[in-house]
């Protein structure tokens, strides 16, 4: 693992440098917000998760030491944990276990231009772990090793989650999941 590109910025934040705080927010907020929005499918909740993630960043900054994970991978993990807390709190989750099976029924046709909402619905219908894998690799563009590290699974397990998630999305959105 090479040098962490965020390490210097984190060190400056820990020393109380307000310019570094601004730089960190500008650098990471769009990524964290996008991650939470796609995991939760709710912009308002995503903003709450982004705020809570940064609170943890500020609290950790003065003692941050690079261990096995890069800072960016660590904040992805923090944000994902906060997303899972919210998913568990939602009324539809009646047990602690989040469902692993996606509802792959094709989504109803929508008006042209409404595809974004359709994709959002499809993402929310696949199993959360599959969604997490797709969000990290496809949207956040983490490498397979970084994504597997953030999810605390092996690369093989990550690839399995990705493939199953994409197959479900393919069935819902493109309608040819079985070919």
């Amino acid at each position: 693992m090479g040098a962490d590109p965020d390490e210097e910025l984190v060190r400056r934040i820990g020393a109380g440098d307000t310019a570094a705080v601004q730089a960190m927010v500008a650098r990471k907020l769009p990524r964290i917000l996008a991650l939470a929005a796609r995991m939760l499918g709710d912009p308002a909740e995503a903003e709450d998760v982004a705020q809570e993630t940064f609170v943890r960043i500020w609290r950790r900054a003065s003692g941050w030491r690079q261990g096995h994970a890069r800072f960016d991978t660590w904040i992805h993990r923090v944000a994902l944990n906060l997303c899972y807390d919210r998913l568990r709190r939602r009324r539809e989750w009646t047990t602690d276990e989040l469902p692993e099976v996606a509802d792959e029924a094709p989504l109803p046709d929508v008006m042209p231009g409404d595809e974004e909402r359709r994709v959002n619905q499809a993402l929310q219908r696949i199993a959360p772990r599959q969604r997490e894998a797709i969000v990290l690799v496809y949207y956040q563009e983490l490498s397979n090793i970084e994504a597997a590290g953030a999810m605390q699974v092996s690369v093989d397990a990550l690839e399995s989650l990705l493939a199953r998630g994409r197959r479900s999305l393919q069935a819902m959105l493109v309608g040819d999941g079985d070919d």
Binding site: I13, L33, R59, E116, V119
Partner: peptide, 26 residues
């Protein structure tokens, strides 16, 4: 299809809220 899912950029208000909280927390 996946590329059609976009997330709005963070609002200036959210950015400001997060920065204000930083000083006290650090």
């Amino acid at each position: 299809m996946l590329d059609r899912h976009r997330v709005d950029a963070p609002s200036p208000a959210l950015h400001r809220t997060i920065v204000v909280r930083a000083a006290a927390e650090v």
